[in-house]
Every structure is written in structure tokens, then in C-alpha cells.
């Protein structure tokens, strides 16, 4: 009897100890990764980073990549937001509990974790190849293609948050509006989406955070460019793609530039997720 009791206590203590260790491992790796990114990134930060293009190699900066990233992300979000909000609205308001709605909701969750490199190849096939054929090679890889690839990654995030946020809107709001004789499209646009606005904004910010660090789908769509490209039909550099290129370069100075880029991307992404969290917590309070 005594030994059984002891054994149970020891097992329990061991389990708790191991759970502590597991948490310490998780937090330890987080600290290790963030610490190195911040340390190496800050060491490599300077003004030239923001003013010089990548054509100068290890004596240059990353300005064209930063501008390219901004443009490509903006295109991605600009495409994904209206489509994603519309699709999410359809799932929540029109197709909730229908078979097609359930299946699309289900497939959207799969698209959420689909391998981004395959989505990149998909956009390569449907945008890059046709545009090469139509313009006889004048336009092949382009910032626009990169933006479309990122839109495919942002889309499921926005669909899902919009869907979830709209389903949180109380039914009384819908009933009140409909009883006044408002057509459903007006109800959706002017009442429901407004009520869920901060939640939807959270979704868009999360999507932006998700796509800002994406590299794989850009390799075969936006491709990269050592010069400043502002037209979305040009090949365009982006920060993650330049980081990938520079980190694989043997030169030490290139590595420093890659770390600086990594620092900028990480800070951008973490600040965005922080911002989305703030927007969301405000949203939560307003629904209580």
C-alpha cells in the first residue's frame, strides 16, 4: 500500500517536472532565436540599409527589397481582403449549416496550412507562364504575380476570421434590421460587417503578418531584382527572398545584411501580431 502511494507520488512529481522542462525548452528556443535575431540584426543595422539598393552587393543595402516587400504585400492584401471578407460573409450569413458551406469552411482550413511553395508554383503556372506567352517575354516574373501568390496565402486567414467574427454578432441585430425591411445585402454591408469590423481588421493584420515572412511562394513569382522596381509588372525583390539569397552566399558581409533584413522582417511581423492582438482584445470587450 505504502509503495503504491509512493509510486503514484513519484510519477506525478516526475510528470510535473517534465512538463516544466518542456515549457522551458519551448521558451528557451524562443529566447535563443529572438535573441540572436535581435543581436545580429541590430549589429548590422545602419542607414545605408534603407537608402541603397541590393545591386551594390555587400556594400549596398536593402532598400529595393523593402519597397518590393511593401508593394507585394500591399497587392496581396488588396486582393485577399475583399475576396476573403466576401467569402467569410457568405459562409457565416448565407451558407451556415449548408453542405456546401460546411465543405468550403473545411477546405478553407486545409488551404490555411497548405504548402506555400505549391501555391507559388500554382501562381507560376496560371500567371507567370501566360503573361510570358502573351507579352512575348517582356513580362514574366512580376511583383503582381508575387502579390497574387501571397493573396492565396492570406485568403484563408481572412475568410476564417471574418466567418468567426460574423458568427459572434448577436442574432437580435439581424432580426432587428430585417424587421425594419432592410434587404439582406444592406444588412450585411451596413450592420453586420460594421459590428464585426475590429475582428475583421484583426484577421487582415494576421494575414499581413503571415505573408510578410513568406519566402517560398515568391521565388518563382516575384523572382527578385537587384534594382529598384516600382511597377508591379517588373521582377521585384522582396526582403525574405533577399535574405534567402544572401544567407546562402559565402560572404560574411552578405550574412550581416541578411541578419539586418531578418531583424526588420521579424520586428515587423511581431509588431503586427501584437497590433492584431490589441485590436482583438478591444473587440472582445465590446461584445461583453
Amino acid at each position: 500500500m505504502e509503495t503504491l502511494y509512493l509510486r503514484r507520488r513519484v510519477t506525478n512529481a516526475l510528470a510535473i517536472l517534465l512538463s516544466l522542462a518542456a515549457t522551458a525548452i519551448g521558451l528557451g528556443f524562443l529566447a535563443w532565436i529572438l535573441w540572436d535575431t535581435v543581436q545580429q540584426g541590430i549589429a548590422a543595422l545602419n542607414l545605408k540599409l534603407f537608402t541603397t539598393i541590393t545591386a551594390y552587393g555587400d556594400t549596398g543595402g536593402l532598400s529595393n527589397a523593402m519597397v518590393g516587400s511593401l508593394i507585394i504585400n500591399a497587392i496581396g492584401i488588396a486582393i485577399a481582403t475583399p475576396i476573403g471578407v466576401a467569402a467569410g460573409t457568405w459562409l457565416a450569413e448565407y451558407a451556415n449549416r449548408t453542405k456546401l458551406g460546411e465543405s468550403i469552411r473545411f477546405l478553407n482550413d486545409i488551404l490555411l496550412s497548405a504548402p506555400s511553395i505549391v501555391l507559388g508554383l500554382f501562381v507560376y503556372t496560371i500567371v507567370v507562364l501566360p503573361s510570358t506567352a502573351i507579352t512575348h517575354g517582356n513580362t514574366s516574373f512580376s511583383g503582381l504575380a508575387g502579390g497574387i501568390a501571397l493573396a492565396l496565402i492570406a485568403l484563408p486567414v481572412i475568410v476564417r476570421t471574418t466567418d468567426e467574427m460574423l458568427r459572434l454578432v448577436p442574432a437580435t441585430l439581424r432580426e432587428a434590421a430585417l424587421s425594419l425591411g432592410i434587404p439582406q445585402w444592406k444588412l450585411t454591408m451596413q450592420v453586420l460587417i460594421r459590428a464585426a469590423r475590429s475582428g475583421i481588421i484583426t484577421g487582415v493584420l494576421l494575414a499581413l503578418a503571415r505573408i510578410s515572412g513568406e519566402t517560398a511562394p515568391l521565388l518563382f513569382t516575384a523572382f527578385g531584382n537587384n534594382y529598384m522596381a516600382l511597377s508591379p509588372l517588373d521582377k521585384m525583390a522582396s526582403l525574405p527572398q533577399v535574405i534567402y539569397q544572401y544567407a546562402n552566399d559565402p560572404g560574411e558581409a552578405m550574412h550581416a545584411l541578411a541578419w539586418a533584413g531578418a531583424f526588420v522582417v521579424t520586428m515587423f511581423v511581431l509588431l503586427l501580431s501584437l497590433a492584431s492582438r490589441l485590436a482583438f482584445s478591444r473587440n472582445k470587450v465590446s461584445h461583453d
Partner: peptide, 24 residues
């Protein structure tokens, strides 16, 4: 706070994991 910190790991872009993996 700990749950948020662990979720932060999911927010770090994969290219950063790659660089950290390669260099450190």
C-alpha cells in the same frame, strides 16, 4: 503570458528559423 510566448514561436517567419538553423 506563457501561452502567448509559445504562440509567438508560431509567428516567427520560417526564413528566420532557416537562418537561425543555418548560422547558429
Amino acid at each position: 503570458p506563457i501561452a502567448s510566448a509559445i504562440e509567438l514561436l508560431a509567428g516567427i517567419p520560417s526564413i528566420i528559423y532557416g537562418m537561425w538553423g543555418l548560422f547558429l
